[in-house]
Amino acid sequence: MQRTEIKIGGFGGQGVILSGYIIGRAASIFDGKYATMIQAFGPEARGSACSAQIIVSRDEITYPYITTPDLMVIMSQEAYSKFTPELAVGGTLITENELVVTHNLRKDLRHYSIPATRFAEELGKKMVLNIVMMGFTAAIADVVSVEAMRSAVKASVPKGTEDLNIKAFEKGYEYGVELLEKVAAGIQVS
């Protein structure tokens, strides 16, 4: 059925929901797949660990909630502690490496991290860290095509900020591609 369950975790204000929205929009509008996104409502959406859940599938999505996510993008320590136990065995974990210390990391996971905050600061706006993470995710995870992700970023960010956000996206994407090349060449990373 090719159903991929994705959870984005961070704290309120980091652009967690927008990140989920970009993945879902990329898949369903620009990649011709199906996507269902569910936002977490309630106190967790306002300050502490918040999350967005997205299902991407080649077929129509019936059951709308995620149960065991295959892919997780984590941008805060609290989200790491709260959400990563849910990850599927052999799942993929993507973290922001200055915001998340991956203590007691499960051995079965494929883990990739990126200094997205630093890259965002170098671009002049810390706010775009979530878009750096999305570029990185596009490179690492085989869920949505990079072209679709790029189109979704352009279409989803506030008008006038497209160039900055695309730069942030490319930065994350390039870092991800290089990281995968290093992994393939057997070079020790992270």
Binding site: Y21, G24, I29, Y34, A35, T36, M37, I38, F41, I61
Partner: peptide
């Protein structure tokens, strides 16, 4: 609520 808050194409 599920259908109302669910985002899809």
């Amino acid at each position: 609520e599920c259908v109302g808050h669910m985002i899809e194409r």
